[in-house]
Design a protein around this nucleic acid. Structure first.
Lengths: 121, 121
DNA sequence: CATTGGTGCAACCGCAGAGTTGCATTTCCC
DNA sequence: GGGAAATGCAACTCTGCGGTTGCACCAATG
């Protein structure tokens, strides 16, 4: 309801990369930092960091501002928050759905197919 | 704190793909369904669906069980839920961090660097 | 003004993953 | 038994993306 699929998509893609998550951790710790600084903390080149920061920025997870000759980035919690809500909503919806199905399966009608066996591996 | 980085990683990767999200939606709606059935609802081949289901299963987002000659899948909300908590925790941590930095920047000490200008684009 | 530290830009590489097709195999059902 | 429906397996293609390197460009500073 609250946020749209597409925005969530960009956030999920942004967060799916482990380097990007490390980058966010570093940024959150530093408060604010430049691409060069961050590249010093991770085992990748500055250019790689720049590219990552670009996708993070497009997901709204970081903000940047120029200060003299350097560009400082800082973290933005908002999209993370709305994504969390999106996930929680979805989990709740699934739960409701499963509950409804279980009720139907156990009580009134004939069962056309059984529940899948619990197949942990 | 609650769940480990690696598990979250697999969930995020699984959710990052739009086809996989559609697949989960379809599955949640159907209650349970086979790869063949699902392939009928999405614009991809059955084999593609099978591969997606494999990564979803490894992320714990679906469960499957054999019923005669067909394999039925159903959705599992738990990992979604813990991921949501993970994101929310992180967002909160960032918020605290930003607050702390703002306090430091405004009050006691000299400011070594200014806040980045608000650069929405 | 020349140097130096920080960015921006572009080309390039390698690989994983999303997708396909074809075929073998199992199981249901007449 | 013998199709027909569903799954399993394998090989293959192709695009995207994470990463690098090299160089040009700016701006602070002695």
């Amino acid at each position: 309801m609250s946020v749209d699929e597409h925005e969530i998509g960009t956030v999920l893609v942004a967060l799916a990369d482990p380097t990007r998550r490390e980058l966010l951790d570093a940024l959150a710790e530093e408060g604010q930092a430049s691409a060069t600084t961050l590249a010093g903390r991770l085992p990748v080149s500055r250019q790689a960091v720049v590219k990552h920061l670009r996708v993070l920025e497009e997901a709204g997870l970081v903000r940047y501002g120029r200060l003299g000759r350097e560009v400082l980035y800082e973290v933005r919690p908002a999209p993370l928050d709305s994504s969390a809500r999106w996930l929680a909503e979805r989990a709740a919806a699934w739960d409701r759905r499963l509950e409804a199905i279980k009720r139907v399966a156990e009580n009134p009608p004939a069962r056309p197919s059984d529940k899948p066996a619990d197949h942990e591996h």
